[in-house]
Design a protein around this nucleic acid. Structure first.
Lengths: 250, 250
DNA sequence: CGAGCGGTTGACAAAGTTCAAATAATGTGG
DNA sequence: CCACATTATTTGAACTTTGTCAACCGCTCG
């Protein structure tokens, strides 16, 4: 989730969707150049968020969805008592805030994990525009639908997988997301803490740490602080799926 | 999830959205009478599903979403190995299939838990119509957004709650859904097996059974087979939330 | 009436959590 | 840039919760 200086520079320059390297992954995907400029027109640029800075807070009135342009964020839902749940990490091109549409407010706080830039897309404008642009509407439906499927996958992870499988799955998913964005799927930097990972995966920090150590011992990955190198992707995939036997289906 | 004979009869008679008692909860919510008839026109009635019968199977081509009219269903996602994950229960007025939009196929099999009737809504027609009817479009966005929020709640349940809290939460959620639909929130019949509950909640069947027994001993609920009576709702709510201390946030 | 399924209960084992403590990393004020 | 204060991460050991295995009950369906 860090970028070489050259790329970071170019990301910041791309003030318009038409030239943004992410447009093929982002909401304007599938839009014609002409339509894209209409879409581009409703977007508000925001100054970069610093690490730890919230994009919005739980309970804030829902006004916009956001496309991540660079950096990364986490979404945390608090339930009164100190018990927070980290429900999502967002990487470039992903849409933030879709779960706030049907209520007047955002259901969780979204916080930058590093210096992060986003495009703000006022939802009322997006909705109107989606009336005229079937492709845009379809893309919006698809984004939400995909998020639903990802959620189901996460539920499966949380309810059926062992701690080892969770960590392996997590690393694979990250790897895959990086790959799709043109970065190395084998070597990357985690922008979140062990505590964040544990919270997201439903594990104690200590468990996360222990398992990463074990993976390292087994030469599956090399971990140094937040730097990750996947040494044996095949093994990692096996780890994520194996033992998946039995549990409730003898 | 069973209905008195009189109500069941009337549900079956309601062939049109305009007279359906669920329209105030369902997709046509917020539509003017005139718009509603347009919406009504695209809907296909289906003959009732028998218990155990699938509405569609995982991998079937995605064509429609479905609104439950009466009865109930479960969604099961299989991952090759025998390890299935039950990701959702659907009650009357709820929309089935939204997570299939962005792929060409449904991501899970949806099976009737009892005799069940649904309205089939071809998605391409729905999409076109949503172009003309902003209210319908909004409702569709809201439905998906709500489902996202429910998923987040479920993730929280799976990753942070104890078995007791999961069962308590589950009963409360069901109770609430019945209440919204005009049924008793205190007395209802479970249409799913203990195994289904366990699968959904990420618990072994034995655990589900034990905890229900314990709740019963403590006079929180009276359970007889699949009949449930909530005796002490306040206590149940406490059970669902309490102990929610600590875990990752000392 | 017997088979089978769904549900319940007990005993034991395993996976993870909690608590404690040491070490490493990062940030801050001078 | 240094010394100190914090915060993050790792590791060990005891303890809990829940899963697994086994046995049994009760009901329904041929």
């Amino acid at each position: 989730m860090s970028y070489p200086a050259s790329q970071r520079r170019s990301l910041l320059q791309e003030a318009r969707c038409q030239t943004c390297s992410l447009s093929s992954l982002c909401l304007p995907l599938a839009l014609e150049l002409e339509d894209m400029s209409q879409f581009d027109a409703i977007i508000r640029r925001r100054s970069p968020l610093k690490k730890g800075e919230p994009l919005f807070r739980q309970g804030d009135p829902f006004t916009s969805v956001y496309a991540v342009r660079s950096g990364s964020l986490k979404q945390v839902t608090s339930e009164g008592n100190g018990n927070d749940q980290l429900t999502n990490f967002f990487l470039p091109s992903e849409l933030v805030g879709l779960d706030g549409i049907d209520e007047e407010h955002y259901p969780g706080t979204v916080i930058a994990l590093e210096t992060t830039t986003v495009c703000e897309i006022p939802f009322d404008r997006l909705d109107s525009l989606s009336e005229e642009l079937p492709e845009l509407r379809g893309q919006l439906y698809r984004s939400m639908s995909k998020e639903l499927r990802d959620d189901r996958r996460m539920m499966r992870l949380l309810s059926r997988k062992t701690a080892d499988q969770r960590l392996a799955s997590f690393l694979i998913t990250l790897s895959d997301r990086f790959r799709r964005r043109g970065y190395s799927p084998f070597s990357f930097r985690l922008s979140m803490s062990r505590a964040d990972m544990g919270n997201y995966l439903g594990l104690a920090v200590e468990t996360v740490s222990r398992i990463l150590s074990r993976f390292q011992q087994q030469n599956v990955v090399a971990v140094s602080g937040r730097e990750v190198n996947i040494l044996d992707m095949q093994r990692l995939i096996t780890l994520a799926e194996e033992e998946a036997q039995a549990v409730n289906s003898r």
